[in-house]
């Protein structure tokens, strides 16, 4: 049954979005074989183009978050961190340059735009990156919801780390607590006031990744940041692309007390919501302890934890070990809807 129109769930990062991209954008893009590049068909965090014995990594992202300012950050920080992180997830933590295009709605407050720009600049400094080119457009009142930011980034690396490098026996490490960004946004939208405050984790991860790769020397074999669709989507993609099964140890997934409470009260699983300052690493088992130590030594990786492993059974599926039993982790189709008790 084909639907003729785009629906909101097509943008939510889950199964529906991947199907849309495959059908509309990738179908017919037979560029993967040419000169060994990792292109659109791979649907990785970015593209990698061989440049002699190194790789040029390229990525682009558009940002449409509402609300534009949220606890822990704003769309500006999100735009910069998101692109820096996509490059880092490909194994390219040293950002060469960023671009930023802004489309803003008529009537958008100038003070907000300046605040967003200040955020972007601060995040760039944190990441050691610079916006070298940009564009600005204004659309009429009502033609756009506030503001849309698009950022592109380019970097060079000796080694590309794809989503698809897992083998049975590899260990999965998450760099910190899960569900922070998605639940902070959800709570902000639904006016849930929480003591101790839910805060987005939005942050550039390239320095953290640099440290992990330095400790790992070739044993980090897969990396992905669990943005839209959450950890569930990221693990599904890694399992599918690597043709392995994944067993997720739910009791090991780090959660803040606030995220756990908000998740229970809203009826939303923290595994299904976006993270903007976390990464999942697939690591050869023998190197896991070293990588974990390197992550935990870094301010952004204090809560890093081993959360699962790749297995040969049930390729493409993610099984959750809940501590009391097991279930299949189903890939979310669209945006999770809150079910407030």
């Amino acid at each position: 049954m084909t639907k003729a129109r785009i629906e909101l769930r097509h943008g939510a990062g889950g199964r529906a979005m991947r199907a849309l991209i495959e059908r509309v954008f990738v179908d017919g893009a037979a560029d993967e074989a040419r000169d060994g590049r990792l292109g659109l068909a791979a649907m990785d965090d970015g593209a990698a183009i061989p440049l002699g014995d190194r790789w040029l990594v390229l990525t682009t992202d558009s940002h449409v978050v509402q609300p534009v300012v949220f606890p822990g950050g704003d769309i500006g920080r999100l735009a910069i961190a998101g692109t820096v992180n996509d490059l880092a997830m490909m194994g390219a933590p040293d950002v060469l340059a960023l671009t930023c295009a802004v489309v803003v709605e008529e009537g958008f407050p100038l003070a907000d735009l300046e605040r967003i720009q200040a955020s972007m600049r601060a995040t760039c400094i944190e990441a050691g990156a610079t916006v070298v080119a940009g564009d600005t457009k204004v659309m009429g009142r009502g033609e756009l919801d506030g503001i849309v930011l698009n950022t592109s980034g380019v970097a060079i690396t000796d080694r590309v780390i794809p989503d698809s490098g897992l083998h049975a026996g590899d260990v999965l490490i998450v760099t910190g607590t899960v569900g922070d960004h998605g639940l902070a946004i959800m709570a902000a939208r639904h006016g849930l006031a929480l003591e101790g405050a839910l805060r987005s984790d939005v942050a550039p991860l390239n320095d953290l990744v640099r440290h992990a790769l330095a400790a790992a020397d070739g044993t980090v074999v897969a990396m992905k940041d669990p943005t839209r669709g959450g950890l569930a989507s990221a693990l599904h993609e890694m399992a599918a692309k690597s043709a392995v099964g994944i067993v997720l140890d739910e009791t090991e997934v780090p959660l803040t007390a606030e995220v756990r409470a908000a998740g229970e009260l809203l009826g939303i699983d923290p595994l299904h919501v976006a993270n903007e300052g976390k990464a999942v690493l697939g690591v050869r088992r023998e190197a896991a302890a070293d990588v974990l130590a390197a992550l935990r030594a870094h301010p952004l990786g204090r809560r890093a934890a081993i959360i699962g492993r790749a297995v040969a059974e049930r390729r493409g599926s993610v099984v959750v070990d809940t501590g009391f039993g097991r279930r299949l982790l189903v890939e979310p189709d669209g945006e999770p809807m809150p079910r407030i008790c």
Binding site: L192, L194, G196, E258, A261, A262, L265
Partner: peptide, 8 residues
């Protein structure tokens, strides 16, 4: 007024 882990 009842408190559920900080949500009232």
């Amino acid at each position: 007024v009842v408190d559920f882990w900080g949500v009232r």
